[in-house]
């Protein structure tokens, strides 16, 4: 058969279905209680032909969203698992542990890692490792408290009102969100190595002898560069091209 005749045939068949007026009323307008879930008619309280409502199977929506999904990775605050877990085994376990309830056991590891970072620099500076330890940071958190917060309460806080930022030095607002531009690395490093003033291990040359007094550990020296923070939704730039 030529194609156009076939198309006309199909159209005719389809059109004939449109004119089927099936009803559950007889010619006197009395309701016939014959609706079933396999009569090829949407009747009763079905939401579509032969499905939905109080008696029939739910209607298929056409796309399969069934199944059970199990966590393999998770993230709250930036820079937590990777910096503090230390070993691969710990990092894997951290990603598959539930926030709060299963994570208290990671606190000792986090604290050990925090001290280990300081030990490396004690050695580098020729100081006994016991004499160079983590110092309570600018938020007033000692080592056990800091590592407990990191390990156990690893969620990002985001405020519905006011400025949202991980830390904005110009306004002093902190821990109310995380924007695309927040320097989470420097913030985290300062909390780890900056001590009570935030300037411990900042690499400054305060004695003016031409060399840094301490290694620079509170900043990685990298800023956001030429990334654009003024874009409308979705707020992120077109991908870098080759």
């Amino acid at each position: 058969m030529k194609t156009y005749k076939f198309r006309i045939l199909i159209l005719a068949v389809c059109a004939s279905f449109l004119f089927v007026q099936c009803s559950n009323e007889d010619e006197n307008g009395n309701v016939i209680n014959q609706e079933t879930c396999d009569d090829g008619i949407q009747n009763g309280d079905e939401t579509d032909v032969d499905c939905g409502g109080s008696t029939c199977e739910p209607c298929a929506v056409g796309i399969d969203f069934s199944g059970t999904y199990v966590q393999e990775d998770v993230m709250g605050r930036p820079a937590v698992n990777t910096v503090f877990s230390g070993s691969d085994l710990v990092k894997n376990d951290f990603n598959t542990a539930f926030v709060v309830s299963d994570r208290a056991s990671f606190q000792p590891t986090f604290e050990t890692t925090l001290e280990a970072y300081h030990d490396v620099y004690a050695i580098a500076l020729g100081i006994p490792v016991d004499d160079l330890n983590y110092e309570t940071n600018i938020l007033g958190l000692d080592a056990p408290t800091f590592t407990t917060v990191l390990a156990q309460f690893d969620a990002l806080q985001v405020a519905p009102s006011g400025q949202t930022t991980y830390f904005d030095p110009t306004t002093g607002i902190a821990l109310t969100g995380r924007t695309l531009g927040d320097d989470v690395i420097d913030i985290s490093l300062t909390l780890m190595f900056g001590g009570t003033t935030g300037t411990r291990f900042d690499g400054a040359d305060n004695d003016g002898d031409g060399t840094p007094d301490t290694p620079q550990l509170t900043s990685d020296g990298v800023g956001p560069g030429d990334r654009d923070f003024s874009l409308p939704f979705p707020y992120m730039e077109t991908p870098n091209q080759e």
Partner: peptide, 27 residues
């Protein structure tokens, strides 16, 4: 209320949701 209020020297933070993202694989 902000979870960090009262921890260490932290005070005065505004109310905030606690949020995290997870990636889950179909079994």
């Amino acid at each position: 209320p902000h979870v960090a209020n009262g921890i260490g020297g932290v005070t005065g933070l505004p109310n905030a949701y606690n949020v995290w993202v997870s990636a889950k694989r179909k079994q």
